[in-house]
Structure formats: C-alpha cells, structure tokens
Write a protein that binds this DNA or RNA. Structure first.
Lengths: 220, 220
DNA sequence: GGATTTTTGGAGCAATGACATCAAAAATAA
DNA sequence: TTATTTTTGATGTCATTGCTCCAAAAATCC
C-alpha cells in the first residue's frame, strides 16, 4: 500500500533535500491505469505510457521500476477504485443478499459504460489471452478474478445465515455463475453495449437467483 | 472458403508443373489457429508461428500473405469448427428452444475444457483489450461475437413461433444475456474451471429462461 | 534428360520493444 | 553561497518484430 523502494529512491515520502518530483505521481499512475485498462498490458507500449504520463523515460524508470511493476501498481489502483463501490454494495448491512447482487449488477452496468474512463473491467478482460512470458500477469489477474468470486460466495454464505438463501445453496457455484456473468458484461461493454442493455442482462441474470426454501414450487 | 490467391500463386489447387508444397497447408493453418487461440494475436509472434507450423519465413509469407491475413484465416477455421457443434444444436429441429440452449451450454462446457485444444473460446477472448493499431481485428472479433448473439436471438424467435417462448419475449435481450454467459464461461475456462463447474454455471444460467405464458406464477 | 515452375532456406532490413546510462539542472539544507 | 541530493532529458543499447528478397533446390511435364 505504501510507496515502494525502487533502486534506492523513495517516491512520495521524505520531502526535503534533493529536487522534488515535478510530476504528480498519483496522477501519472492514474493515466497509466487508464491506458492499461483500455489496451491491456501488451497493447500498451513504453512510449505510450511515458507520453500519457507526461514524464521522461528515466523518470519513469526510477519512479516505477519497470513496465510490469507499474502494471501491478495500476492494477492495485484499479482494484482500490472498483472495490470501493463493489464492497460498499456487497457489504451493505441494510439489504438482503438478493438485493445486494441486484444492486451490484445495476452498479456494474453503470460503471462499465461510463464515459469518463475505459469501457468494461480491467480485471475481467486482462491476462486471458497471452504468451507464456506473461505467466506472472496472467496468474495475477486470475487471482484477482478468483478473489472477487470468493467475495461473492462469502456474501452468499452470510445470506444463508440471514435466511436470505436456503441452507443447501451451493454458494461457490452460484458465485461462479455471477462471476461469469460479470466477465461477460465486460466483454459486452467493450463491444459497445449500452448501459441499459447491460442493466437488463443483469436483471435477467438475477432470475437465476434461488427461490427460498418452501417457495421453489412452480405452477406447471 | 476456397483457397485464396496470394501474390500470384495458388495454394492447394493446380497440381502439376512446379515443385509441390512440402507441408500440409491445412495442418499448418491448424497449428497457427491453436497458437492464436491460446495466445491471441499480439501474444503470438511471427517466429512462434513459423516454428509451430514447421515452415520457413518465406513459405509463410507466400502461402499466407501476412500475420494478419493468417489470423483471419485461422479465425475462419475456428468458426468453421465451432460452428459445427454450435449450429448443429441450435438448429436441431427435434428439440424445443429451451432444450437447445441447455444443450448448447452443456456442449460449451465440454468444448471449453477439452484437453486436445486450448481452453475457452478463441472468439470470446480476442480483441477486447488491444491497442488502436489493432482496430481491424478488434472490430472483426466484435462482429463475430455479434453474429453468434444474433444467431441465438434468431433461434429464440423461432421458439416464439413454435410456442416455446411467450410472444412478448425480448429475444435480443435474452440472447445478449446468454451471449454474456458464454463469454464468461470462456474466461472461467481460461482460469482453470473444470468441465463440471462450467456445466453447472450453464445450468444456473438456464434458470433465467422465461416461463411460458400462464405459467409464470410462483407460490410465494 | 532438359526446361519450366514453384518452393525453400537463409540472410537481411527498418521499425519498435523495453530498458539503461549519464551529465546537466534544480531545489533544499547548511 | 555552497554543498548536497535527487530529478530530468537526451541519447544509447540490445533484442525482437514483422516482413522482404534472392539464389538454390526440387518436382513435374515434355
């Protein structure tokens, strides 16, 4: 979380002595994040990065270490931002599990199609289609995806305790399903689907939500 | 469909006269497809390709034209193969619409996790995260995705005619939903999800299938 | 067998990739 | 002001990328 030590220099802390950085590190990181988000790791070149960040090659090098290190930081930055709304909804104590997931997808539809940042999700789209040399990144992104899927499953388990879901609900599987839908929404967003289209897909996905015990009978 | 004319030479036809090709073009194309499927367009280098295809740089060049042209051919090759099982199920006249989609996802779960080729779907994962220079490929893949989504919607419209679905079903939206699930399955497969996990996600997705008219009442 | 036609291997090219170096510049502390 | 510390811009390196060219090789037809 705190700034990392890179090649002996510490960025962000220790005001005083030498010449202070002329660029806003957080802002530069944000620009990098947007580029990675839009184009992916491979799709973003060194030169693209330093141009967007407004810094020189060497500033880049001794502030961020390497392209890969920057990508990790940018990913963390993204997770911090997206985790904000994601967990706010998931952990809202005032709503039941089903409502939480419904709101999650409503928020997802909105966030994935906002005009002030790239479309879709940086995590969902990254590290699925890559060469052997990108194994680190691939695994890192897979872990992030597994993490959010795990958080969903956890929320569902709490839902069982709250009586929102039947005892015999397979939370891991249900979370895997909603996770898959979220990945699909990211692709749809990339392909230009509207906010309303994504929202409706989310609503349809909620129809798969399990009925409570004793209420699963349907008139044939 | 037939072999294309590249730089004056015609591959695959016109046996006779000059030295015949020593490599099997279809086999080489297959190898290229597998590599692109596994690593994506950017993730696959020229050298990777000619090594996997077992041909020289110049053979590659005058047989396939360019990396991008080869990618298009490989994509067509993939679509021909995947379209085989996809449309066989979608257009099976002996089953109703819901059964068709259920089988589609069962087949998807199986095909996405087979050991004899890369995991997931070449179309779902490609061209979502790429630099401006790959606009052609990005748009091509988006079109392919839209095509399969359209085919799903078409099948649903037939389902309405057959009485499998209520008249007021929004087929485009329902297809968008199932399309999104399919994209999500591809990501799950890439992240190592088992055949059974994918199959179960598909089953859960089918719970969103609309109830027939007059049967949508649920005992609260 | 000789002519013709096409493939093949290998060398090579310009452009780009990411990364690295270093002296000059700048801002603070003493 | 001077010494110190750190950033900065310019330039350099080394590997890779996708592509091209060309002479030698090989297989068919006459």
């Amino acid at each position: 979380m705190t700034s990392k030590i890179i090649k002996g220099s510490i960025q962000g802390s220790k005001r005083g002595r030498g010449r202070p950085a002329v660029f806003d590190r957080d802002l530069a990181l944000r620009e990098a994040m947007n580029l990675f988000w839009e184009r992916g790791y491979e799709g973003t070149s060194f030169d693209d990065l330093i141009a967007a960040m407004g810094i020189s090659s060497s500033s880049f090098y001794n502030s961020f270490g390497s392209k890969e290190a920057l990508y990790c930081e940018a990913t963390q930055s993204y997770l911090e931002w997206s985790g904000h709304w994601f967990f706010a909804i998931l952990n809202d104590p005032s709503i039941d599990a089903k409502t939480a997931f419904a709101r999650l997808f409503a928020a997802t539809a909105e966030e994935f199609t906002r005009g002030d940042h790239p479309l879709g999700c940086m995590i969902s789209l990254a590290g699925t289609h890559c060469p052997p040399g990108m194994k680190n990144i691939r695994e890192m992104m897979a872990e992030h995806r597994a993490f959010s899927e795990g958080a969903m499953a956890e929320r569902m388990r709490k839902g069982i305790q709250d009586g929102d879901l039947s005892e015999d609900t397979d939370c891991d599987m249900l979370a895997a399903y909603y996770s898959a839908v979220a990945r699909g929404l990211a692709v749809q967003a990339r392909d230009g689907a509207s906010h309303e289209k994504l929202a409706e897909i989310g609503r349809l996905a909620m129809r798969a939500w399990p009925a409570r015990q004793g209420a699963e009978k349907v008139i044939a």
